[in-house]
């Protein structure tokens, strides 16, 4: 699989995750989101950027319960709950948001 972003071809694996994490930029995220019929709002970006920071620090995409807890700590309790996160990312806050963030599928997601 591959997508076209501003004339550049970006390769994806069979589940739609970037094959090379270095291919990521915000436009890539927008294209991936539009495929899922999502327009990225500030609230989405907040989570996407959180995930990228988490990956940078720990070299791992967090499992959903880890993500929920950590978001709550960093961005406040009103955001650190599955309802809020599932509204933003209906296909699963960890799986879908990691995909938009250009990260691998979360470790511990089953």
């Amino acid at each position: 699989m591959a997508i076209d972003v501003n004339g550049k071809t970006v390769d994806l694996d069979e589940e739609g995750y970037l094959t090379d994490l270095k291919d990521w930029n915000e436009d890539v995220a927008k294209v991936l989101a539009s495929q899922d019929e999502i327009e990225l709002t500030e609230s989405h970006w907040e989570v996407v950027k959180f995930l990228r920071d988490y990956y940078d620090e720990y070299q791992i995409a967090p499992a959903v319960r880890v993500l929920t807890k950590a978001i709550g700590k960093k961005l406040g309790k009103d955001k650190g709950n599955s309802k809020y996160l599932y509204e933003l990312f209906p296909y699963g806050p960890a799986k879908q948001a990691c995909r938009f963030a250009g990260l691998p599928k979360p470790t511990g997601c089953i």
Partner: peptide, 14 residues
Amino acid sequence: MKDFSKTYLALGDY
């Protein structure tokens, strides 16, 4: 090799 030494620091989150 993947830079996995940092990942031990995430164990507490798990």
